[in-house]
């Protein structure tokens, strides 16, 4: 079982507010999955390099392209002020 305190810490890092029953359930579920996944440790992989040796992807030229439906993207903003996307303060001490 993963400690509930570890689940809480992880949840904070991935921006999830979990209820106490979710924490309890997840610590049990994740432990079961990890227990299954642990069989990977039986593989002897010391000699294997993780370097990606597939051919490199050729990136396209980085140049702006006009997108005619920008209005539709703006219309899906949850909150706006004028023509701007409105978001909460990034630094919490500026609040209020």
């Amino acid at each position: 079982m993963i400690k509930p305190s570890d689940i809480k810490q992880l949840a904070r890092l991935v921006h999830l507010d979990l209820t106490s029953s979710e924490i309890e359930r997840l610590s049990q579920d994740e432990a079961e999955v990890l227990n299954y996944v642990d069989r990977l440790k039986q593989m002897n992989l010391e000699q294997i390099s993780i370097k990606d040796d597939r051919p490199q992807i050729k990136l396209r030229e980085d140049r702006p392209v006009r997108f005619d439906r920008a209005g539709e993207l703006i219309a899906s903003f949850p909150q706006t002020e004028g023509r701007f996307l409105k978001v909460p303060f990034v630094f919490e001490d500026q609040d209020g």
Binding site: H15, D17, F77, E92
Partner: peptide
Amino acid sequence: DGLRYGEAETAKSLQETYARTRS
């Protein structure tokens, strides 16, 4: 994250907005 599209549970702080929206 509730900022640019989709459902948003807007809170006072950014962190809270993220966490509430995603939860």
